[in-house]
Design a protein around this nucleic acid. Structure first.
Lengths: 256, 256
DNA sequence: CGCGATTTGTGCACGCCTTCACAAGCGCCT
DNA sequence: AGGCGCTTGTGAAGGCGTGCACAAATCGCG
C-alpha cells in the first residue's frame, strides 16, 4: 500500500514519529472505530460527524471525541472528520501500516478455524506459519500453509519475522508454548487456552476465553431470571437445582 | 449494603438465592476464579488462601478478596477458602447450576470450531442446535449435531429451551440473525461477527472480535518498537502528535 | 486458657474512565 | 463582511475500580 504518511508532519523522513500514550480503554476502542470507518468509506462517505461515527461504532459520541482527541486534532469543527484521513491516522497509531506476521501454534479444533479466518488478513495481519506438537498434524496443509513442528519455531521465527504469537493449544501445553515464543523474541501473545500465562516483563498477553464469555452471559441470564417472576416461554425452566430450589427471590430493580 | 445472610448449611443446592448485584468487573473475573478453583480441586486442595487463588487466577490478592466479599463471607480467617464451597457458590451466582442450552448460528470456519469446542460442555453449557442459512450446509453433521436451517429456529428454540445464542456468521448476516434470536426470546447473545448489533433493551450482547485483539497487540508492538528504535527524535517540528513521547508505560499483561 | 501466627474482610485514598456541558472554531448564507 | 448554525475539542464533575493497610477473626500450640 501507500507509504505510511503522517498527516500534519510535513516532510518527515522515515524516522519513527512520536506516539502519544493513549489510555488503554481508548486503544481498545480504536479498532472498532477503524472498522466503522472502513464501512463508511466503502459506502461513499468522505466525512463523518462524531455522532455518526459513534453510532456506527456503538459508543457514546462524547467518548469518541475524547478518544480521537488523544490522537490529535484531525476533525474540522462544523464539518466532522475526514474519513480517509482518520483511517490513515488510526492505522498508523495501531501500527497497521506494516503487515505483521503472526505465528499460530496449535491447529486443533480452534486453531484450524483461526488459520482459515480471513478476518486476520483483511485487517492487517498475515498468518505466516502454523505449528503443532503432534507429529500426526505436521505436514497437513491448511489454507495454503503447511503445519510445521513446534521445534521449527526458532528457524521460522527469524525467516518470517514473526511479531505476534497466537496460542490455540490445550491448556496444559500453553505455558510451554508461551515460553518458546518468548524465547524466539515474540513480545505479543494472544492466548486462547483457558489458563494463566506467566511471561517476562515487556511481553504483552491478551487472553480470549470463549467459555468465560458465555459464563458472563449466564450470570446476566440468571439475574434476569431471578428478577422476573416466571418466564412465559413455558419451557422447562426448572429442570435444574435438584434440591428443589425455588428461585423466586427478587427485590431489587436494576438501578440504572 | 449487603444482606447476604446465609442461614443453615450453604452446601450445594441448599443456597438461598439472594443475588447480590455484583460490579461488572467482578462478574468478569468470577469465571477465572472458578477455573482456577477447579484446577485446585483436581489437585487435591481442600482449602486455598486468597494469595494462592489469586496467583492461580492471575490477579491481585486484595482484588480477589474484595470480589469474593461481594458474594458474602465464605472464607475462614486464618485458614482460607473452602474450595468446594467456593466452587458451588460461584457456580450458583453465575447461574451454572443449570446447564444452559446454546444455539450456534453460522457453521462456517469459526462456527465449525466452536461447535466442536469441548470447553463449552465442560464448563456448564450444552450446544443444543446448529443453524445456518446456506442450504449446502444444512444436514451436515458436526460433533453429533445436524445443522438445521435458520428457519427452524423458532421451533427448536422452544423444544430445546434455548437460553443463549452464539452468532458466528459473516458480518452482513449478523444483525438479521440477532433479530431472529431476539424474536424467539433469546436474551443473551455472544457475537463473533465484526459488527455492532442493535438489540432491544434487556438483551445482553457480548462481542468477541479476534482481529481487534490482534490490533490491540499491534499497537503495543508499535509502541514498544518506537521506544527502542529512537531515543529522541531529531528536534524539529514533529508536532503532529502533541504530548511527545511521555514514557509512562509499565502495565504489561493486559487483562480484560 | 491464652497467645501468637495467619488470613480474611473492609475502610480509605487514589487514579482512570465516563459523561456533561459549553466555549472555540469552521463553513455557509445573506 | 458579518452573522448563524453546526461540530469539535476540552475542562470539570462524578462514578467506578484498584490497591494499600489494618482491624477482626480463627486456628494451633504450649
Amino acid at each position: 500500500m501507500s507509504q505510511h504518511r503522517h498527516p500534519g508532519a510535513p516532510g518527515r523522513a522515515g524516522a519513527v514519529p512520536a506516539l502519544p500514550d493513549l489510555p488503554e480503554a481508548t486503544v481498545a476502542r480504536l479498532p472498532e472505530y477503524l472498522r466503522a470507518l472502513h464501512n463508511l468509506a466503502e459506502s461513499g462517505h468522505e466525512t463523518v460527524s462524531s455522532e455518526g461515527l459513534a453510532s456506527a461504532a456503538g459508543v457514546n459520541s462524547a467518548k469518541l471525541r475524547k478518544d480521537l482527541s488523544h490522537l490529535g486534532s484531525y476533525g474540522t469543527r462544523g464539518v466532522g472528520y475526514d474519513v480517509a484521513l482518520l483511517v490513515d491516522q488510526i492505522e498508523f497509531v495501531l501500527g497497521l501500516t506494516q503487515r505483521r506476521a503472526v505465528a499460530l501454534v496449535g491447529v486443533g479444533n480452534l486453531g484450524h478455524a483461526l488459520a482459515g479466518y480471513d478476518g486476520f488478513a483483511s485487517r492487517g495481519f498475515r498468518i505466516a506459519a502454523l505449528f503443532d506438537a503432534d507429529p500426526e498434524r505436521v505436514g497437513e496443509e491448511i489454507s495454503g500453509l503447511v503445519v510445521q513442528h513446534i521445534d521449527e519455531l526458532p528457524r521460522v521465527a527469524v525467516e518470517e519475522s514473526i511479531a505476534i504469537g497466537v496460542i490455540a493449544t490445550p491448556a496444559p501445553a500453553a505455558q510451554a508454548v508461551a515460553d518458546q515464543l518468548v524465547a524466539v523474541g515474540v513480545t505479543s501473545i494472544l492466548n486462547f487456552a483457558p489458563c494463566v500465562l506467566s511471561v517476562p516483563e515487556g511481553v504483552d498477553v491478551r487472553k480470549v476465553d470463549l467459555a468465560i464469555e458465555l459464563q458472563i452471559l449466564s450470570f446476566h441470564e440468571h439475574r434476569k431470571a431471578s428478577l422476573t417472576a416466571l418466564p412465559a416461554t413455558g419451557g422447562s425452566a426448572l429442570t435444574a437445582l435438584p434440591g428443589g430450589l425455588a428461585v423466586t427471590d427478587s427485590q431489587e430493580a436494576i438501578g440504572t
